[in-house]
Design a protein around this nucleic acid. Structure first.
Length: 929
RNA sequence: GGGUGGUUAGCUCAAUCGGGAGAGCGUCUGCCUUACACGCAGAAGGUCGGCGGUUCAAUUCCGUCACCACCCACCA
């Protein structure tokens, strides 16, 4: 027997294990190949809302396409996430007496691998809880042997083609992580700072120039002072020299167009080794480049002895003090400036001159632009190409080397005299270049940017450079589902690499999702303490545990108190268990075209209720159908027809409409519209109306009659179709119900996950039945409205009177007498003749049909009078509006005929209705007086 | 400084072609009517951000302004 309420915990794991064990997620059949890539999550990470959201959408697509007969592959795997993972392991070593450096490179990497083995299963376990149906047998890791081989292959090829080069450049340097990072990994935000005005005395004479700087400590690396060539104030000084304070060095005053005379003093200090603009200027003017920092941004030996070893900010203070003491500090102004920070470490990025590896990006970008321009790749929503194009058109070379230990080691070897060879391995390099066996070779110590291997993901996972059958079948993949935050990091780079190396796009569609935010619209992040773990929404969590989780990784105690308070206020009872399907359905419902998605627990709750609704509908249907032994045999072409009444014809027609809407919506990646169509059908058509009608019918006719049998079959078959339709979004509950329904539905298959998706059948669209049902729903609605207004007790049966209407109304009222009685709670229903004077009634109009509810013992005539007057007011207003339109010459001459007809029809209707109400009011008035 | 997206019911969000706006949650009223109180039946609630334009007709198209969010950009 089924429980009275749906309990997701009781079934979810069981079905997942079954599907996986039976290999349902592997490509099968001989349909067209269809492939989707999982953006590889951090192998040691855990699932957050963004993953849950995107993976749910991917899973909906892949399950749906699987049911539509495609030979689907969801290719998955995990990412080594170089910086993030290395940071975690380094932090683990804190306080253990060991450190990265004490362990040494091999020892440290060994530790990272151990951590990967230890925690690597977490996120994939969580993905399974979400129902993710990827082919786990093909799971890959960016640092496994095969993918590492692809990485080396690509590196070597691009290097040979001159698309990868090594050079000394000014790069973004993270002094905490002690590595270069790419432009994308630097976040510049406006912060409060200061502008220091410093006086640089002229070497000749006793004059001075005043430079304004936001970074006084870099003064020690200055190699020039620049002014604008047209700046009258300084023109005479160009070519002269100044004394650089605190150092004893002299600097030239140069002229350069780039100087903005209006900013600061119009006179700027030039530090080519520590500023991107100054670097360019240094190149233009052949200035010396003096690097004054070590790798962790303390001052090095190029600084005067007094400052060596100081941190950059200590040095700043010291230098400001010293300038002040020397009388060279003119003034200090508050100043807001953009401060570049590392997106991982959060520390201020230091431009640093160093030897790095780069990808020459511009040539690769050209084809990537073309592929979107000519439609080989399609962005959904389309406007995302507007961010894609400009970035690619002005792309800068990509710094791919990282001074980390965890990652793909760069396949390049240094000889003893500064030679450098790139190759697949040390042996290959020796062989290729005929290097003597005793020549010492040292592999380049750097590793590659994690995104380098990510960029190869579409084909590395399918076996490239080998010509595998998978590569032939599944590349290009069908669609990439990802967030707009990684269009540059990942999407664009994947497009460039795939086009260049394979000559084809990596995917045809890019479906760009919004970003999941908290209920207040804030980005969810650990540091904000506002994260919701999708698994907690599934399983539930009590308030204390939630608070503990959110405050575990916070640094500042002040923040802990604040987050504790906020969390207790928002979730005083913690979070209830909602089950995976409810969460998945919520994600679908949220997936509109907007960029920011506020995660709303209220909606999850609503969709948990929806699951329960389905559960109980199935419970009812099964109870009705169980006794009927003919049920399973009845399955022919999906839904029974013999002896079908208008309700059956209607619900079957509505089902076709729903299937068509749902299918069209999913084809356009409108998960929200698809989920809405499904929800509307299941709840408000099937449950609210068809099941209620079926109840009545089954109570009225003999159980073994054709009518009863057809009703039962329709209940079962429509539910079965609805379960198929819902399965991609709600795989667990639908599988459970489908299995229970199977003896009645006559489906032979082993699992819903292997069944075919419903296809709308136009032949079953039934306009007449829909019209009939419209009438019935309208009249029932009118009666219910009156009952509600008049506060008639639900149990109380009423004697309904009908008047007016046309012949069809008369026929229908007889045809659906039984339905009206049960759905509207009628005691009796009688037509009044035109002449007959009704007793005091409450009335409602359905088209020309007057629905009259006698007031005797029900309500106050005065109240009814007020109601009618309000209704009359609305009708008169409407009539006036329509009349106005029809009297306008412009309207009648220019509007399309059908709009004019519609307006005319409305006017006639409104006038007629108003007249009926006036008559009603007159009657009431005479009775009431 | 450029660019993109948004502004619709108390909250979260929909609305294919321009022809008097919908849902869920919340609120109010009445119901434990034997599938479901995670429910049923009703109801209230909107100058569709402001202004201007095009049009017979604008939430919808165009312009402009305001506010919010995000992206890009070398102003020390």
């Amino acid at each position: 027997m089924m429980d009275i309420a749906y309990d997701p915990a009781a079934i979810e794991r069981r079905w997942y294990e079954y599907w996986e064990r039976e290999g349902h997620f592997q490509p099968r059949g001989d349909g067209e190949p269809w492939c989707i890539l999982l953006p590889p999550p951090n192998v040691t990470g855990s699932l957050h809302m963004g993953h849950g959201f995107q993976q749910t959408l991917m899973d909906v697509l892949v399950r749906w396409q699987r049911m539509r007969g495609y030979r689907t592959l969801w290719q998955g795997g995990t990412d080594h996430a170089g910086i993030a993972t290395q940071m975690v392991v380094e932090r683990q070593l804190d306080g253990t007496g060991e450190s990265r450096t004490s362990l040494g490179r091999d020892g440290f990497i060994e530790r990272v691998w151990r951590w990967k083995e230890e925690s690597g299963g977490t996120i994939t376990r969580q993905m399974r809880r979400l129902g993710v149906s990827l082919d786990w047998s093909r799971e890959r890791f960016t640092m496994d042997d095969g993918l590492s081989r692809t990485v080396r292959e690509v590196f070597v090829r691009l290097h040979r083609e001159g698309l990868i080069y090594r050079g000394q450049r000014l790069v973004n340097w993270d002094p905490q992580l002690r590595t270069a990072v790419s432009d994308l990994e630097v976040i510049a935000e406006e912060e409060a700072g200061q502008l220091w005005h410093c006086r640089y005395p002229l070497v000749v004479g006793d004059g001075a120039v005043v430079v304004a700087t936001t970074r006084p400590e870099t003064l020690l690396g200055d190699t020039a002072v620049a002014v604008h060539p047209e700046d009258e104030r300084y023109r005479a000084l160009v070519g002269q020299r100044v004394q650089l304070p605190l150092t004893g060095r002299e600097l030239p005053i140069i002229a350069d167009e780039h100087v903005d005379p209006a900013f600061g003093t119009g006179c700027v200090k030039i530090t080519p080794a520590h500023d991107f603009n100054d670097y360019e200027m240094g190149l233009r003017h052949q200035l010396p480049m003096i690097d004054i920092f070590t790798e962790d941004a303390t001052l090095n030996d190029n600084a005067p002895a007094a400052y060596r070893g100081l941190d950059r900010y200590e040095a700043r203070q010291r230098i400001v003090d010293d300038l002040e003491a020397a009388g060279l500090l003119e003034k200090i102004e508050p100043h807001r400036l953009k401060v570049p920070r590392g997106d991982r470490s959060g520390v201020v990025i230091e431009p640093r001159l160093s030897d790095q590896w780069f990808v020459r990006a511009a040539p690769l970008a050209e084809e990537a632009i073309r592929a979107v321009e000519d439609g080989r790749i399609r962005f959904v929503p389309d406007n995302w190409k507007n961010s894609y194009f400009p970035w690619l058109r002005e792309i800068k070379d990509w710094c791919i080397s990282r001074q980390l230990w965890w990652g793909h080691r760069i396949p390049a070897w240094h000889g003893p005299d500064g030679e450098l060879w790139v190759g697949y391995s040390e042996e290959a390099v020796r062989r290729e270049h005929q290097l003597p066996a005793d020549m010492p070779l040292l592999q380049d110590p750097d590793v590659l940017d994690t995104w380098f291997s990510s960029a190869l993901w579409s084909f590395s996972t399918l076996g490239w450079p080998d010509k595998t059958p998978e590569l032939a079948d599944y590349h290009p993949t069908a669609v990439l589902v990802t967030g707009f935050d990684i269009i540059f990091f990942w999407v664009a780079r994947m497009v460039m690499m795939s086009l260049h190396l394979l000559g084809e796009v990596p995917f045809r569609d890019v479906y760009v999702t919004g970003l999941v935010r908290d209920a207040r619209g804030q980005k969810m992040s650990k540091s904000r303490g506002n994260v919701l773990d999708p698994i907690d929404v599934v399983d539930g969590i009590d308030c204390d545990a939630l608070v503990a989780k959110r405050t575990a990784e916070l640094m500042r105690p002040k923040q802990v108190a604040q987050i504790t308070k906020a969390t207790r206020r928002e979730f005083p009872e913690g979070i209830a268990a909602h089950g995976t399907d409810a969460l998945r359905f919520t994600f679908c419902a949220l997936a509109s075209t907007t960029r920011d998605l506020r995660f709303d627990m209220g909606r999850v709750e609503g969709y948990r209720n929806f699951c329960n609704k389905l559960w109980n509908a199935a419970r009812f249907v099964m109870r009705q159908a169980e006794a009927d032994r003919s049920m399973a045999a009845a399955r022919d072409d999906g839904v029974a027809v013999a002896g079908a009444g208008v309700a059956e014809r209607w619900i079957i027609s509505a089902l076709q409409r729903t299937i068509a809407d749902y299918t069209a919506a999913l084809e356009n990646y409108r998960f929200d519209l698809a989920s809405q169509a499904l929800h509307e059908f299941c709840w408000h058509e099937y449950c609210d109306w068809y099941v209620e009608l079926a109840k009545r019918r089954l109570g009225d006719v003999p159980p073994d009659s054709d009518e009863a049998r057809t009703t039962r079959q329709t209940l079962v078959q429509v539910l079965e179709q609805a379960l198929r339709l819902a399965h991609p979004m709600m795989p667990f509950i639908t599988e459970e119900l489908w299995q229970r329904l199977r003896p009645l539905s006559g489906c032979a298959g082993a699992s819903l996950s292997l069944e075919t998706a419903p296809v709308a059948d136009d032949a079953r669209h039934d306009a007449e039945a829909e019209l009939e049902m419209e009438w019935l729903k309208g009249v029932v609605g009118a009666v219910r409205h009156l009952r509600g207004e008049l506060r008639v007790q639900p149990g109380q049966r009423i004697a309904l009177l009908l008047r007016g209407g046309d012949a069809t109304d008369h026929q229908r009222s007889e045809r659906y007498a039984a339905e009206l009685h049960s759905l509207a709670g009628l005691e009796s229903c009688r037509w009044l003749s035109a002449k007959e004077t009704p007793p005091p009634v409450a009335s409602h109009l359905h088209a020309a049909l007057e629905i009259l509810l006698p007031l005797a013992g029900l309500a106050d005539p005065a109240q009814e009078r007020v109601r009618l007057e309000q209704a009359l007011g609305r009708l008169e207003q409407d009539a006036k509006r329509q009349r106005g339109k029809l009297q306008s010459a412009g309207f009648t001459s220019k509007a399309p005929a059908e709009v004019i007809d519609e307006t005319q029809r409305r006017l006639t209707q409104a006038e007629a209705s108003a007249e009926l109400l006036r008559r009603q009011l007159r009657l009431l008035g005479s009775e009431g007086d």
